[in-house]
Computed example of a mutant assay.
Amino acid sequence: MQSINVHQASATNQATPPNPKKVKLSFDYNGSPDGVDHNLLILLHGLGDSKGPFASLGKNLKLPQTATLSVQAPEPVPYMDGCFQWFPSFDMLTGDLLTPANPERLKGLIRTRNLMDELIQHLIMDCGFNASNIYFFGFSQGGTVALDTVLFGKVRNLGGVVSISGYLLEEQRVDRKIGDGYGGYILVTQGEKDDTIGSKFEAEKRFKAIERQCASSAEISHIFISNKNHTMPSSEREWRLIHTFFGKNMSRRNIELENMSDVYLVK
């Protein structure tokens, strides 16, 4: 017969802050503004940026019961102080952007994937976050890393991703069997005038590559924003979509109920 364990509900609200000495990636961590670190939002900047501005963004979002972690890309952009990239992006001789034909892009992304796996394992094992309560917000190259982490990383039940104009690398498209794949939540927003991604047809094709990595139970959406290029969100409509995504999919603890002396946790 299966045993049943009864414990008084835990009053622990704050997670253990991540230890920068235990992982190789650099980050800025902030606990939830309401003191309840139930969820964690990992923010990943775009090409040529750094963790500082995204740490400020995480604070400004003020998501309830949500700590934030702004992670800095591991590789400096050559000849550009204070700018970072998640994988090699430029030809060192010409300065041109690397194309999908260059194998260094995917090799670099896989190196970053391993670093993200290390970080997430630390957040789960040492800091106390549940995998399903870990979410991502990434812009452009940071969105690529966020999607790669949830679709191909070692932890397969992460909560969800908001990717702003970020897709999988074209060269990493791998079909999955039906029913096998990521089963969480994904929102991709895309500017209708995004010259970096290209035409609407190209964006839709790249979104289908994401769909092929997801289980039938996944909830994924692709929304185009009018009069927008390859930039961070600035319109009320896009920010409303983002807040609605997190509000709908992030779970919440009922602290008032947990604080009642006669409430017990049954496992």
Score class of each variant (00 low, 15 high):
residue 16 T to D: 03
residue 3 S to M: 03
residue 264 Y to T: 00
residue 124 I to M: 07
residue 225 I to T: 08
residue 130 N to L: 15
residue 214 C to Y: 07
residue 63 L to T: 14
residue 88 P to T: 01
residue 134 I to R: 01
residue 77 V to N: 03
residue 183 G to L: 02
residue 19 N to T: 01
residue 187 L to C: 11
residue 171 E to D: 15
residue 233 P to S: 08
residue 92 M to S: 07
residue 264 Y to I: 01
residue 134 I to L: 03
residue 236 E to H: 08
residue 45 H to S: 05
residue 241 L to V: 13
residue 183 G to V: 01
residue 33 P to I: 02
residue 115 L to R: 09
residue 221 S to N: 15
residue 6 V to R: 10
residue 127 C to A: 07
residue 118 E to S: 12
residue 232 M to T: 13
residue 12 T to R: 14
residue 189 T to Q: 04
residue 240 R to V: 01
residue 44 L to R: 05
residue 107 K to G: 01
residue 112 T to S: 15
residue 29 Y to H: 12
residue 190 Q to W: 06
residue 24 K to I: 01
residue 1 M to E: 10
residue 101 A to E: 09
residue 215 A to R: 13
residue 256 E to Q: 12
residue 216 S to C: 00
residue 136 F to P: 10
residue 88 P to K: 05
residue 30 N to E: 06
residue 206 R to A: 12
residue 193 K to M: 08
residue 194 D to I: 07
residue 216 S to E: 02
residue 71 V to E: 10
residue 183 G to F: 09
residue 243 H to D: 01
residue 221 S to D: 15
residue 46 G to A: 11
residue 92 M to C: 00
residue 220 I to C: 02
residue 56 S to H: 07
residue 107 K to V: 09
residue 210 I to C: 08
residue 42 I to Q: 09
residue 2 Q to V: 04
residue 177 K to M: 02
residue 55 A to R: 15
residue 224 F to D: 04
residue 214 C to T: 06
residue 247 G to C: 08
residue 211 E to R: 08
residue 262 D to T: 09
residue 3 S to V: 07
residue 83 C to A: 12
residue 205 K to C: 14
residue 93 L to N: 09
residue 125 M to C: 00
residue 255 I to A: 04
residue 137 F to D: 03
residue 185 Y to P: 00
residue 59 K to T: 13
residue 238 E to H: 07
residue 190 Q to N: 12
residue 68 T to L: 10
residue 156 R to S: 15
residue 230 H to W: 10
residue 194 D to E: 03
residue 14 Q to Y: 04
residue 224 F to T: 07
residue 117 D to S: 10
residue 43 L to G: 01
residue 128 G to R: 10
